[in-house]
Amino acid sequence: MDAVIDIALLALLAVTALAILRMRNLFAAVMLSGIYSLLSAGIFTALDAVDVAFTEAAVGAGISTVLMLGTLAIVGHKEKKPAHTPLLPLFVVLVTGGALVYGTLDMPPFGDPTNPVHHHVAPRYVEESGHEIGIPNIVTSVLASYRGYDTMGETTVIFAAAVGVILLLGGARPARVAAGEVSGGSEEGSEPLEEQSHG
């Protein structure tokens, strides 16, 4: 049963991903990428990663989608037809993907309980966290205690993102007139927007 769900979801994901790639209406692409996140949340659930599924749904289908839509509302949602032939990117992608497929050939079998991942490091979390930490959700134990430092880093990353976003979008718009002098170039593009910002 697991397998069927797995196969079906993965197939759906592939279709969605290709549709996003082909789609020129960016609104639709963003909505599809939200769906993509939801589908992958489904996969995560099927693979027993409920915490990840929850987060992916909240982030991928929630925040990311809202931000993308907000951006599209500002920058417009039509994608131009690609002008150049995408041969080089195609080549790069094929090589990368080929390398990965090659790498999977010797990977431990999917789901096999004898895989090394299940016998080193992780068993301690499963077996000991119950009395070392004392809370049932092992993921929380690992996240907040065993690898709590990573989570502190993660919190800092989020904070860094906020700093970045405020630096870029917060407050008044930077005067770009001076930039023209500095670079020796003109700034026609920004003029009308400059007016809008005051309006």
């Binding site: 931000l67 907000g70 134990s141 907040a144 919190t155 993102a161």
Partner: peptide, 25 residues
């Protein structure tokens, strides 16, 4: 410990998400 650090995560994530939303909006 876990209670407090989760509280820290909650505070930052809430703050950042709303901040970012305000900035975009």
């Amino acid at each position: 410990g876990i209670l407090f650090v989760e509280l820290g995560v909650l505070t930052t994530v809430f703050g950042v998400m709303v901040t970012v939303f305000y900035a975009f909006a």
